[in-house]
C-alpha cells in the first residue's frame, strides 16, 4: 500500500512545527525520516497514522491492504507501549481482541507472531520480567499480528543499548525481506537509517520542511560489506553535512528559555 502526504502543516498553538510536507511512501519501501530534534519527525508520523489531526494538508492511502490485514497503519512505539498487566501473549492479542475472528485463527495469529519474534517461550511472561530488547520484540509481534499494510516505526530502537539495537535491526530486516511491508521509520540515528532505508527524507529544523529525499543506492544485503563501505560513508557524510548546521541551530534554539512543546 502507498501512503501519500500532501501539503501537511502543523502547529502546537502559535508554534509551527511542520510546514508544507509532501511525501509519497512507495509500496514495499522503507522510508526513513531523519532530522534534528524538534523537526517534527514524530509529529509527522503521528499525522501519517491518523493519531494527530494536521491543521492543513491531508494524508491518504492508495491501493488495497494485504489479505487478512486488520489494521492497515500500525505503529511500533519508542517506549514499547506494552500493558504491564497483560502477559506477552496478552499484549499481542490485544490488537485482535476487538475484532471478530474465529478463536482458532486468533490463536494461530498470536502464536505465529510470537514465533517469528522468538517469543514462543515467553508467552506467559509479564513485561516487567523482560529486557528492553524483548519488550520491543513484543511490540513488533503486536504490530505483525494485525498483518499491517504500512508499519509506522517511531524511533523503535532508541530506548535500547547498541548491541540489542544491532540484533533487532537484523531480525527486523529478515522479517521485512519476506513481507516487504511498506514502512516509515523515524530515527535520529544516521547509521540506522542507512542500514534500513530505501530512501531517507531529511527534515529541516523547526518548522520542519523536507530538505532532501536521498535514495540509498546500495542494495541492503551489501550495506555492511567492506566493498561498499566507501559509498555508505559518502552518504553518511552527505547526510551529516545536511543535518549538522540544522542540528546546531536547533540545539541553540532548544536552549532558549521560552520553549513550546515539541
Amino acid at each position: 500500500m502507498e501512503l501519500l502526504v500532501e501539503g501537511v502543516s502543523h502547529a502546537y498553538g502559535a508554534l509551527p512545527v511542520l510546514e508544507g510536507i509532501d511525501l509519497a511512501v512507495r509500496p514495499g519501501e522503507i522510508l526513513s525520516l531523519i532530522g534534528p530534534s524538534g523537526s517534527g519527525k514524530s509529529t509527522l508520523l503521528g499525522i501519517m497514522g491518523g493519531l494527530l489531526r494536521p491543521y492543513a494538508g491531508r494524508v491518504s492511502t492508495r491501493g488495497r491492504p494485504p489479505a487478512g490485514c486488520l489494521n492497515p497503519l500500525t505503529y511500533v512505539f519508542q517506549d514499547f507501549a506494552l500493558l504491564p498487566w497483560r502477559s506477552v501473549a496478552g499484549n499481542v492479542s490485544l490488537a485482535l481482541d476487538h475484532h471478530r475472528l474465529p478463536a482458532g485463527e486468533r490463536r494461530e495469529r498470536v502464536a505465529d507472531a510470537l514465533a517469528r519474534m522468538g517469543l514462543a517461550d515467553f508467552a506467559a511472561a509479564f513485561p516487567r520480567q523482560l529486557s528492553g530488547g524483548m519488550r520491543q520484540r513484543v511490540g513488533i509481534a503486536r504490530a505483525l499480528v494485525v498483518r499491517p499494510a504500512v508499519l509506522l516505526l517511531d524511533e523503535p530502537l532508541s530506548a535500547l543499548d547498541a548491541q540489542t539495537r544491532d540484533l533487532l535491526t537484523e531480525e527486523f530486516l529478515a522479517i521485512w525481506q519476506r513481507e516487504r511491508t511498506t514502512a516509515v521509520h523515524v530515527t535520529h540515528n544516521l547509521g540506522e537509517a542507512l542500514r534500513l532505508a530505501d530512501r531517507i527524507a531529511v527534515l529541516s529544523r523547526r518548522p520542519g520542511r523536507v530538505r532532501e529525499i536521498l535514495p540509498v543506492d546500495v542494495p541492503r544485503e551489501e550495506r555492511s560489506a567492506a566493498a561498499r563501505a566507501g559509498r555508505i560513508a559518502e552518504l553518511h557524510a552527505h547526510l551529516w553535512a545536511l543535518l549538522r548546521d540544522e542540528a546546531r541551530a536547533a540545539d541553540l534554539e532548544l536552549a532558549e528559555p521560552a520553549r513550546g512543546g515539541r
Binding site: 493519531l51 489494521n71 517506549d79 500493558l83 498487566w85 490488537a95 476487538h98
Partner: peptide
Amino acid sequence: RSLVRMGQSFGLPAWAIVWRIVVPG
C-alpha cells in the same frame, strides 16, 4: 497516555480502551 494512544493506533473502540487499558491501569 502513550498506552491510550497505542490502543487508538490499533483501532480499539472507546469501550475497549476504557475496559482494557484505563481500568486495569
